[in-house]
Design a protein around this nucleic acid. Structure first.
Length: 469
RNA sequence: GCGCCUCUAGCUCAAUUGGCAGAGCAAUAGACUCUUAAUCUACAGGUUCCGGGUUCAAGUCCCGGGGGGCGUACCA
C-alpha cells in the first residue's frame, strides 16, 4: 500500500470529548454528528466486509466502525498495522453491542509504524525499555502517560498559586562560574570563547537572593539543577527544583506556604489530602507537625543529644547508631548524621524538622533563641526530604565567615563544600532584607502526588547509560 | 562502590536431571458484516547479552565482561 501522507490534518474532536458528549446514546443508534479525529490504531478486528479498530489519541480510546460499503479504500484500511497513525472522518454512532464508535466514512494514513508495536495486552514490562523508548511507553503504559500529565498540571498549578500571591517568576543562569547554593559536586564544562571553566548549577539560590537584594521582593524559579552524584530511585543527576524567596518573611512563614501549597496541589490533583502511597496513605492536610531535630531524635531513639555535650560523648552515640564518624565532624555534623541515620526515614506523615545545627547550614540565619542552631527546616514526607528552607542569612560579615569555613572544609578534602562567592557577598553588602527562602524537589513532590516510587517514573527521559550498539 | 536477582523471536513468556530452542500476540498470506486482548487457516521469525571454559552434548554448569532491577552505601 502506498499512500500520500498529507502535510496537515485538522481533527475537530477527541476521543474523551466524544465519550463525554455521546456516551449515553442508545445502542445501535446514529447521532448525525460528523467528526474528525486522529491518533494511533491500537487494535484492529477485521471481519470480512466489516472492520473494527481502536483508535487512541492523547485523551482516550474510541472504536472505529468500518463497513466495507461505507469506508473508502476498505482493503487498505484493513491492511493498516497496529501503531499506524490515522485520521478518520465520519458519523458518531453506537454499535448494536453498545460501543460508541466513529463510522469510518473517510480516512488518511498519517504515519506508518515501520516497527511492530509491543504486545497489545502486556505492553512493555522491561523498565529499561520503557525509559529508553518513552515514545512507545507513553502509548502502551497508560499510567505512564497519566503521571506526566499530572506532573505538568502540578507545575502549572504551582506557578499560578505563586503568581496569585505576588511571586514573580525569573530565570537565572544555569552556567555558574562558581558552584554554590547547595552542598553537592557539580558538573563541569568549558566555554571556548572565554576559555573559562563553568559549572552547571547545583542550585539557583545565590542568584535568586541577589534578586531579592535587587528589589524583587517575591521571586521564584522552577528549573533544572544538576548534581554529579549517585543515581537511585530518588536521585537523578538532573532534576527539577522550585526555589522561592520572600522578603520580610522568616522560616515560620515558609512552613505555612509549603503546607498550604502541597495541600492545594493534593486537593486539585488527587481530590483529597489523604494521598495513597504504596499500601499506606499520607495525610498532607495543613497544618503539618513542627518538631526540632533534637526532639525527633529523642522521640525515635530515646537518646538525648545536645550540641554542648562533650564531643566524645556525641561520637560514642553516633557510633552506637552505626554512623561513620570522621575526625573533622563537629557536634553539629554528628547530630545531623545521627538524625539522618536513625530518624529521617521513619517519619511518615509530613513533618517540618526544624532547627538545624549552624555547622551544616552555611546559608541560614542564626536561630533567634538557640545558640549554635539556625532557623532552618526540612519538610519530610514518607521518610524523604521534600523541601529545605530557612530564614536566610543576611549578614555579609557572618556569610563571609561561613564561606571561609566552607573553603577550609574544601581544603581539607570535602569536595562538596562551598567556595567563597565574592559577588554574592557584594550583593549582601548592599543590603539583603530579612528573607525566607525555600527549595522543593518537584520530582519528589510529583512522586508523592502520583503514588510512584522511583524518580525515573516522573522524569520523561531519565539519565541512563548510553545504549550498547 | 558493595550484595542479591535478572537478560531466550519486535513484545509477553516457556524449555524437567545438561539431551533436537518453543508458544501467544505482532508481522506476512488468506477466510469471515457487531467485533472489542475478535476468531480460524497457513507462512515466517533466533549471535538464547558478549567472550572464554567443562562436557559426547550448554539457554541450562563454571570463570570473566556488559546491560537492567532491587537493596545498601553515597546524597541538603
Amino acid at each position: 500500500m502506498s499512500r500520500t501522507i498529507p502535510y496537515r490534518f485538522e481533527p475537530n474532536a477527541t476521543a474523551a470529548a466524544l465519550h463525554a458528549e455521546h456516551g449515553e446514546i442508545e445502542d445501535g443508534t446514529e447521532t448525525g454528528v460528523q467528526v474528525t479525529i486522529a491518533g494511533r490504531l491500537m487494535l484492529r478486528r477485521v471481519q470480512g466486509k466489516l472492520a473494527f479498530g481502536t483508535l487512541q489519541d492523547s485523551t482516550a480510546r474510541i472504536q472505529l466502525f468500518a463497513p466495507g460499503k461505507v469506508t473508502p479504500d476498505f482493503a487498505d484500511f484493513c491492511d493498516l498495522n497496529i501503531g499506524d497513525w490515522i485520521g478518520v472522518t465520519g458519523e458518531v454512532m453506537k454499535t448494536r453491542k453498545g460501543e460508541l464508535s466513529v463510522k469510518v466514512e473517510g480516512w488518511s494514513l498519517l504515519a506508518a509504524a515501520a516497527r511492530p508495536f509491543p504486545d497489545k495486552f502486556h505492553g512493555i514490562t522491561d523498565q529499561d525499555t520503557r525509559y529508553r523508548q518513552r515514545y512507545v511507553d507513553l502509548w502502551v503504559t497508560p499510567e505512564s502517560r497519566e503521571v506526566f500529565v499530572l506532573r505538568s498540571k502540578a507545575i502549572s498549578l504551582t506557578r499560578r498559586w505563586l503568581e496569585d500571591r505576588g511571586f514573580l517568576e525569573v530565570e537565572t543562569p544555569m552556567f555558574h562560574p562558581i558552584p554554590g547554593g547547595a552542598l553537592a559536586r557539580p558538573f563541569t564544562t568549558h566555554h571556548n570563547a572565554l576559555d573559562q571553566e563553568l559549572f552547571l548549577r547545583i542550585a539557583p539560590e545565590l542568584y535568586l537572593k541577589r534578586l531579592t537584594a535587587g528589589g524583587f521582593e517575591r521571586v521564584f524559579e522552577i528549573g533544572r539543577v544538576f548534581r554529579n552524584e549517585g543515581m537511585s530511585t530518588r536521585h537523578n543527576p538532573e532534576f527539577t527544583m522550585l526555589e522561592l524567596y520572600q522578603a520580610y518573611a522568616d522560616y515560620a512563614d515558609i512552613m505555612v506556604l509549603v503546607e498550604e501549597l502541597v495541600e492545594h496541589l493534593a486537593l486539585e490533583l488527587v481530590g483529597t489530602t489523604e494521598l495513597p502511597y504504596g499500601d499506606k496513605t499520607i495525610n498532607v492536610a495543613a497544618p503539618w507537625r513542627r518538631a526540632s531535630m533534637i526532639e525527633l531524635i529523642e522521640e525515635t531513639t530515646g537518646q538525648v543529644v545536645r550540641l554542648d555535650m562533650p564531643i566524645d560523648d556525641l561520637r560514642a552515640i553516633a557510633r552506637e547508631f552505626h554512623v561513620e564518624v570522621k575526625d573533622s565532624y563537629g557536634p553539629g555534623k554528628l547530630i545531623l548524621e545521627i538524625y539522618e541515620k536513625t530518624t529521617e526515614s521513619v517519619l511518615w506523615d509530613p513533618v517540618f524538622v526544624t532547627d538545624y545545627p549552624k555547622e551544616v547550614s552555611p546559608l541560614s540565619r542564626d536561630h533567634r533563641e538557640l545558640e549554635g542552631f539556625t532557623e532552618r527546616f526540612e519538610g519530610i514526607i514518607a521518610g524523604r526530604e521534600l523541601c529545605n528552607a530557612f530564614s536566610e542569612l543576611i549578614d555579609p560579615v557572618e556569610q563571609r565567615a561561613r564561606f571561609e569555613d566552607q573553603a577550609q572544609q574544601k581544603a581539607d578534602g570535602d569536595d562538596e563544600a562551598m567556595v567563597v562567592d565574592e559577588d554574592y557577598l557584594r550583593a549582601m553588602e548592599y543590603g539583603l532584607p530579612p528573607t525566607g527562602g525555600l527549595g522543593i524537589g518537584i520530582d519528589r513532590l510529583v512522586m508523592l502526588l502520583a503514588n510512584v516510587h522511583t524518580i525515573r517514573d516522573v522524569v520523561l527521559f531519565p539519565t541512563l547509560r548510553p545504549e550498547a550498539t
